[in-house]
Amino acid sequence: MIPAICLLSACEGKEPLYQEQGYVFGTLVDVSIYGETEPRSRQAASEVMQEFQRLHNMLHAWQPSELSELNAAFARGESKAISAELVAMLQDAAQLSQQSQGMFNPAIGGLVQLWGFHADEFKPVQPDEKQIRQWVAANPQMSDITIVQGRAQSANKSVQLDLGGYAKGYALDRAAELLRKQGIHSALINIGGNVLSIGRHGKRPWRVGIQHPRKSGALAALDLHDGEAIGTSGDYQRYFMLGNVRYCHLIDPRSGYPMQGVQAVTVLTRGARAGVLSDAASKPLFISGARGWRAAAGQMNLPEAMLVDGQGNIHLTTALQKRLEFTDKYIRPQVEQ
């Protein structure tokens, strides 16, 4: 199963379903195209995979990239010319950060690195508490960044951008744009648990499953309609154990420590920025925890959302409850208006 989300409506016979998989953004990606000839599907999927690789190379946080070069300039207190595409991304990410009251904060890449998550393989590490306090006190924010005539500069040298909570969603939207331009009317794009749907899987909607955060297999399933995206943030993919404590890559910018007490958050989005929202908008809910997630969902305009807390209890909105079918029929989620 692909992490976080799995494609449940696989080939059940001789249906014209083409699937291509790859590994980019540090995760598995899958492009499924229905109802087209194999050469046409292969060409379309190949173009999407090339776009994913281009974005991966552009936005890598700890290998040479346009983003890492910008981070180096920020650390030196210098400005740097950046591409129009990156300008638009940073402006969008800054707006989402403001909307979330800083709970979605791509400027804390220094903290992510301090905890050892800027690596392809990360090892258990306990950062020095003084260093953590210094990063929190420095308070890097997206609002520290100014962009004038294509040159970006930060008033705060501690700003280190990590777009790991934005890039996958942006890539989903780009993939959907490319596929639609090629006349593809039915496809499902999956980037490590962020999934976007185009059209239908033949006569039925695309059906996807939400990965159980502690067991193999799906926690629940739902039909994904045209233009909808679903995204899950969890503590079960990028994490390490130190003693009996799980430390995940989702860091609370207020404390400087990895968020605990939440196993997963899933959000359902739609519209022109469905991909970006499925990725970025789930983070404030996760960081807000079981007590604050519902208010955070309201801030991010997410009527359809679900949180699995540290004990495995499921909390979800009424709107998402209407869409989900739980694998375990005995699950009794806590529905919050």
Score class of each variant (00 low, 15 high):
residue 205 P to C: 11
residue 211 Q to A: 13
residue 223 D to R: 04
residue 213 P to N: 05
residue 199 G to H: 10
residue 236 Y to A: 13
residue 173 D to G: 15
residue 188 L to R: 03
residue 180 R to Y: 00
residue 188 L to I: 02
residue 179 L to H: 01
residue 179 L to P: 01
residue 184 I to L: 14
residue 209 G to I: 04
residue 219 L to I: 10
residue 188 L to G: 01
residue 223 D to E: 13
residue 213 P to T: 03
residue 194 N to R: 12
residue 216 S to G: 10
residue 174 R to F: 05
residue 191 I to P: 00
residue 229 A to D: 05
residue 221 A to H: 10
residue 202 G to E: 00
residue 214 R to D: 06
residue 233 S to C: 08
residue 228 E to K: 12
residue 187 A to F: 05
residue 189 I to P: 09
residue 179 L to F: 04
residue 185 H to K: 13
residue 219 L to C: 12
residue 213 P to R: 08
residue 233 S to G: 10
residue 191 I to N: 00
residue 191 I to C: 01
residue 230 I to H: 12
residue 185 H to E: 13
residue 220 A to Q: 05
residue 178 L to H: 08
residue 214 R to E: 12
residue 212 H to N: 12
residue 237 Q to C: 07
residue 197 S to P: 00
residue 188 L to Y: 03
residue 175 A to Q: 02
residue 186 S to T: 00
residue 191 I to E: 00
residue 205 P to E: 14
residue 186 S to I: 02
residue 229 A to Q: 04
residue 190 N to V: 05
residue 218 A to D: 09
residue 198 I to M: 03
residue 219 L to S: 13
residue 199 G to V: 10
residue 181 K to M: 08
residue 175 A to H: 02
residue 220 A to H: 04
residue 196 L to T: 03
residue 233 S to W: 08
residue 195 V to F: 07
residue 229 A to I: 05
residue 208 V to T: 08
residue 216 S to K: 11
residue 224 L to K: 02
residue 188 L to Q: 02
residue 233 S to D: 02
residue 220 A to N: 04
residue 230 I to R: 08
residue 175 A to I: 01
residue 194 N to M: 09
residue 234 G to Q: 09
residue 209 G to H: 09
residue 186 S to H: 15
residue 233 S to T: 15
residue 201 H to D: 00
residue 216 S to R: 12
residue 213 P to D: 01
residue 186 S to F: 06
residue 198 I to T: 02
residue 192 G to S: 09
residue 226 D to L: 12
residue 227 G to F: 11
residue 236 Y to S: 15
residue 200 R to C: 13
residue 223 D to I: 03
residue 175 A to C: 01
residue 175 A to Y: 05
residue 196 L to Y: 03
residue 205 P to N: 14
residue 195 V to C: 11
residue 220 A to I: 06
residue 216 S to H: 10
residue 181 K to V: 01
residue 213 P to K: 07
residue 229 A to S: 15
residue 204 R to W: 09
residue 185 H to I: 06
residue 198 I to Q: 01
residue 234 G to M: 11
residue 197 S to E: 00
residue 229 A to R: 04
residue 222 L to F: 06
residue 171 A to K: 07
residue 176 A to R: 05
residue 173 D to N: 14
residue 179 L to D: 00
residue 185 H to N: 14
residue 199 G to F: 11
residue 225 H to E: 13
residue 215 K to Q: 15
residue 170 Y to K: 15
residue 227 G to Q: 08
residue 217 G to Y: 12
residue 222 L to M: 11
residue 214 R to H: 08
residue 180 R to I: 01
residue 236 Y to Q: 13
residue 176 A to S: 09
residue 198 I to F: 07
residue 174 R to W: 07
residue 181 K to S: 11
residue 226 D to P: 10
residue 212 H to P: 08
residue 237 Q to M: 08
residue 195 V to W: 07
residue 186 S to G: 08
residue 234 G to H: 14
residue 237 Q to I: 14
residue 218 A to G: 04
residue 215 K to P: 00
residue 182 Q to A: 15
residue 213 P to H: 08
residue 223 D to C: 09
residue 192 G to Q: 05
residue 207 R to N: 06
residue 216 S to N: 13
residue 170 Y to V: 10
residue 176 A to M: 09
residue 210 I to G: 04
residue 199 G to S: 12
residue 188 L to A: 01
residue 209 G to C: 05
residue 224 L to T: 00
residue 207 R to G: 06
residue 188 L to P: 02
residue 197 S to A: 15
residue 191 I to M: 01
residue 195 V to H: 04
residue 218 A to I: 02
residue 225 H to P: 00
residue 172 L to H: 04
residue 195 V to K: 09
